[in-house]
Each structure stands twice: as C-alpha cells, then as structure tokens.
Computed example of a mutant assay.
Amino acid sequence: MKQQYLTKGFTFIEVLAVLSIIAIATLGTLVLRDWAVSNARVSEAKSMITTLQSGAQMWRPNTGIYTGISITELTTIGAVPETWGDGVEKNPWGGDVSVAPDVGDLTRYTVTLSGVSSSTEGERLVREYSNTAVVASYTSESLTITFQG
C-alpha cells in the first residue's frame, strides 16, 4: 500500500517573500507620510506668512514706518486671527511666530518663526521667499524673513 503525503502550509521561502513585500510597502508608506507631513507644515507656514504680510499692510500707518508692529497689535486690529494671540507656540512646528520692525530700516518688517526643527523645511521656505523678500534666512531652528513695506 502506498502512502501519500499531503503538504499543507507555506514554505519558509514563501513566508520570507511575503514578509519582505510587507516591509517594503510599509517603508514606502512611512516615506510618503513624512513627505506629506513636511509639505503640510511648509504650506501652513506659507499661509501664516501671507496672512502676516496682509496684516502688516493693514496695520502700516501713512508714514510707512513699522515701529510698534507686533502679533498682538495685528490681532487687536483683526488683521490676523484672534487665536494667534501673542504668537507663542503658533507656528506649524510648535514654535513662536513674531513680527517686528526691522531695526536697520523702519520701513521694513521682519517675520520670525522659531522652533523650525527641520532644516530641510526651513531652507525650503528660504528658497520660496528669496525672490519676494528683502532677506530670508534659516539658522538655528529660526526662520527670519524681512519684507519691504
């Protein structure tokens, strides 16, 4: 009498192949997630800076001198959202946002986002504003952009 052996299940190679495919798909998903989060932070920061630019134009007195401009002042006149308050912990990285007159030229104002923990994102924002700002720089987790009024 012949005995038949039935094999059930998967071989070790098949299991390794499936696990490898799952690992590669997971890594791809994580890379895409990081890319999407980074793009979202940069986009939110650009929106915030655009709002501050519009608010600065509303706030600017007839003399064109920005002495006294601040997030609090812009909030007071309704030029920026009331929820921004004094700008503490309001930027997309959880750091502070501020706007102040440029000490070298009072017809300019400077927007600063502190706590920008990703140098790639900070440098990307510098490139975005290099053509429209007087000065744009990123150093030590701080993005500084100076605009002409």
Rank of each mutant, 00 (worst) to 15 (best):
T29I: 07
T132A: 11
V31S: 11
Q3D: 06
F147R: 13
I49F: 13
L6T: 09
I21E: 05
Q4P: 04
L30R: 10
D105E: 10
S114P: 00
N131C: 00
V15S: 04
G95H: 04
A45Y: 06
S20P: 04
G55E: 08
E82K: 03
E73F: 02
A133C: 06
V134S: 14
S137A: 15
V18C: 07
D102V: 05
I21S: 11
Y5A: 05
D96N: 15
T144E: 11
T112H: 02
G94L: 08
T50M: 11
T76P: 00
S43T: 13
L106W: 01
A79F: 02
W59C: 05
T11G: 15
R124K: 13
D102P: 10
V116P: 14
T72V: 15
T63G: 14
R108E: 11
E128T: 10
G68M: 05
S47W: 11
N91F: 05
L106V: 11
T139Y: 01
G85H: 08
G55K: 06
T50Q: 14
I145M: 07
R60F: 01
G87W: 10
L30Q: 15
R41N: 12
A100Y: 02
L52M: 08
L52C: 07
T75H: 03
V126M: 07
N62L: 12
T120E: 15
S70T: 12
T139V: 12
E123K: 06
P101K: 10
G95N: 12
T146G: 09
A56T: 04
S38E: 12
T112C: 02
K2C: 02
V97W: 03
F12L: 15
L125Y: 00
S119T: 15
F12C: 05
S118G: 12
N62A: 13
V111T: 07
D34G: 08
S20A: 14
G94E: 00
Q148D: 14
I65K: 02
L125T: 02
G115S: 07
Q148S: 10
G78E: 07
S98V: 09
S137N: 14
G78D: 10
A45S: 14
Y138D: 08
V31K: 09
N39D: 11
S20D: 05
A40N: 02
A17N: 08
V42A: 11
L52N: 02
G68Q: 03
S70M: 04
